[in-house]
């Protein structure tokens, strides 16, 4: 074997190890989540944990009902969808279908910058500006509530949705549009009846990953959502999403105690939820590629 071939082999080996090391981290994280999360079920029934309505982890006796936290996470994230789906898909459509080359060159990077703003800055904005504004506008007792968190999370998830939806639209082959125009369809008809259905699963992937992004966001909801562990009945109720509970409490939970294990169990549930969303997105986007005749 020549020296050159040997060098080639070594480099290949190094990159193989690097590529698989992320797998190692993933396995490590899953292992720790199960190892530290499962012990709580020795003391608390799994049904009491998942469907209990009260979260009083530090009281004597403690109550570990995470239903309000799970509902809170979904409630806030669904609210965020009402912001990021129209904003994200709307801007993707504009960028892909209508914007001039120049506009596109400015808009796309700008939206992506939105994704790189640290989440604490969004949280700060929600707390200092948006919450007092909502409080005055809707005449509610306090601005730190689901609506506040949803709006800001929606803005945060917009780049994810926009960027992925725009990719999906750009994958729609030119021939689809040309065929549509050829039979006399207008630009609007082509967009609604040809391009969007063709990119449909790609757009769904974008929405699902946006949801996944929103549900996993921590700092912003910790600062903006009000933090009360209740099952919300209105968008003006405060909530305590799972991520906020973990972030606020992990530092104070005695290591190895029930509270500590309960927080890991919440993290495990959160991990499984986002894992499910990502798998779902992967399956849909694979189908999408096959449908468009792209390699899977």
């Amino acid at each position: 074997m020549s020296l050159f071939r040997l060098k080639e082999k070594i480099i290949q080996g190094v990159f193989t190890v690097l590529a698989f090391s992320s797998l190692l981290f993933l396995v490590g994280i899953i292992f720790v989540l199960f190892k530290e999360g499962l012990p709580i079920f020795k003391d608390v029934k799994i049904s009491d944990f998942l469907f209990g309505r009260f979260w009083y982890p530090t009281y004597e006796p403690p109550e570990f009902g995470v239903l309000p936290l799970i509902v809170g996470s979904f409630y806030v994230s669904l609210g965020a969808m009402f912001v990021c789906v129209p904003l994200g898909i709307g801007s993707a459509l504009y960028i892909n279908e209508m914007a001039s080359y120049k506009q596109k060159a400015i808009l796309k990077p700008l939206i992506e910058i939105l994704a790189s703003v640290p989440s604490i800055i969004y949280g700060f904005f929600a707390m200092a500006i948006l919450a007092p504004f909502l409080q005055k506008t809707f005449n509610i007792p306090i601005g730190l509530c689901t609506l506040n968190a949803s709006i800001i999370l929606g803005v945060m998830a917009t780049p994810t949705v926009c960027s992925l939806a725009e990719d999906a639209l750009s994958y729609v082959p030119r021939s689809f549009r040309e065929a549509s125009f050829a039979v006399g369809a207008t630009r609007w008809q082509t967009l609604i009846k040809v391009v969007i259905p063709a990119a449909g699963s790609g757009i769904s992937t974008a929405v699902i990953l946006g949801m996944s992004r929103a549900i996993g966001e921590t700092m912003t909801v910790l600062m903006a959502a009000g933090g009360a562990a209740i099952i919300p009945t209105s968008i003006f109720d405060p909530v305590r999403p799972m991520t906020a509970a973990i972030a606020a409490e992990m530092g104070e939970a005695p290591v190895g105690g029930d509270h500590y294990h309960a927080l890991f169990a919440i993290a495990l549930a959160l991990f499984l939820i986002t894992f499910f969303f990502n798998i779902l997105a992967e399956i849909i986007s694979r189908r999408f590629r096959i449908k468009l005749g792209l390699s899977g």
């Binding site: 009260f54 979260w55 309000p68 707390m127 200092a128 919450a131 007092p132 409080q135 007792p141 306090i142 601005g143 730190l144 910790l222 600062m223 009000g226 933090g227 009360a228 562990a229 209740i230 109720d237 405060p238 305590r240 606020a248």
Partner: peptide, 20 residues
């Protein structure tokens, strides 16, 4: 009460009370 607003720091409480 479960619907009490929860804040992560003394300063956050002071700020929120000052605005509410």
């Amino acid at each position: 009460r479960p619907d009490a607003i929860m804040q992560a720091s003394n300063q956050a409480i002071a700020t929120t009370v000052a605005r509410t």
